[in-house]
């Protein structure tokens, strides 16, 4: 996206479509796999969202099942839970996005300042690993760390004379557990993105700053951070589209069916799962998915509009 902007920016815009197509053919060819991917896996299935408006049966299939209007959406709105669910889902995602990005950036900058290349490589790999651990294992790991009776941390605390709080019974502190687990999983991955962005910063700027006598902190403050602005905004815009979509795997595996914690840990996905696991209704499941997607779509449009107003260079489109 950025690249195509750079190439087309200085072209006079009065040229025809075909001319520009020809000019950018290499870039376009490079984009083809991605375009095809999204076409087949994101756009082609879209009409299937119609299932959210039907009373699905196997004979009729998606388009032959009876149309029922908004009925599949009703349970979500009549439950009285929607505000709580939206609040939880959005707040968690905000924390993940904000805290996550800050920590990722911070670590990327730290790594960039480390001179020993080997150390950087090893650290990066180690930090990346949790990203590949399935949520089921994360859930088990956390349980075995913090469960009150036999958990590793509980035993540690007890052996030092303290008393471990009953985390699984306390809806007020459990969000911290979820946030820590999430950050532990995602930081390494995000760090790589920022690290790559930092590596892409024009070295001559750094050298010039050095020559001008800027110390390490000043270089970070006045060169690295401003240069990361674009990356931050793009990542933010990408993330915001999914702000009403929760990480079901993580939440379900950490909280499970422990309803004591629901008031602060229940997100749309876990709620829907709980409602649906008894009835297995495709249509209602799709209805929720559609609701989330439309909500996310609106949010992305709004956020992008705002960004465009403020500084059009950083908007997605």
């Amino acid at each position: 996206m950025k690249a195509s902007k750079a190439v087309t920016a200085d072209r006079p815009s009065q040229h025809g479509f075909l001319y520009r197509l020809n000019q950018n053919k290499v870039l376009l060819i490079m984009c083809v796999p991605a375009i095809l991917f999204f076409l087949f896996f994101s756009y082609a299935p879209m009409p299937g969202a119609y299932v959210a408006f039907t009373n699905f049966n196997y004979n009729g299939g998606i388009f032959g099942s009876p149309f029922v209007g908004w009925r599949n959406f009703e349970f979500l709105f009549t439950s009285g839970q929607l505000t709580l669910l939206l609040r939880n889902t959005v707040l968690y995602n905000l924390v993940f996005i904000i805290l996550g990005n800050i920590i990722q950036m911070f670590i990327a900058i730290l790594l960039n300042e480390v001179a020993c290349k080997k150390f950087v490589k090893v650290t990066q790999s180690l930090m990346f690993l949790p990203y590949f651990i399935s949520a089921v294992l994360v859930g088990l790991l956390v349980y075995n760390m913090i469960n009150y009776d036999y958990g590793f941390l509980s035993n540690l605390v007890r052996s030092m004379g303290g008393d471990m709080p009953k985390l699984y019974s306390d809806p007020n502190t459990f969000p911290a557990v979820i946030i820590i687990a999430k950050l532990w999983q995602s930081t390494g991955y995000g760090t790589v993105v920022y690290f790559a962005a930092i590596c892409g910063i024009d070295a001559s700027m750094m050298e010039a700053a050095k020559v001008d006598g800027a110390n390490g902190f000043q270089r970070i403050r006045y060169i690295t951070l401003p240069c990361l602005k674009g990356t931050v905004i793009i990542l933010f815009l990408f993330a915001i589209g999914g702000i009403v979509k929760g990480d079901f795997g993580l939440f379900y595996n950490l909280v499970g069916t422990n309803s004591v914690l629901y008031s602060t840990t229940d997100i749309i996905e876990t709620y829907v799962y709980r409602c649906m696991m008894n009835t297995f209704n495709f249509s209602q499941g799709s209805a929720v998915g559609l609701f989330q997607s439309v909500f996310g779509f609106v949010l992305v449009m709004v956020a992008n509009g705002v960004v465009k107003k403020l500084d059009s260079d950083y908007s997605l489109f």
Partner: peptide, 19 residues
Amino acid sequence: DSLPQLENLANVYNTYMPQ
């Protein structure tokens, strides 16, 4: 189909009954 309450009832049951 005549029991649109079931989903929400399932949720309430599964929230309070474990406790």
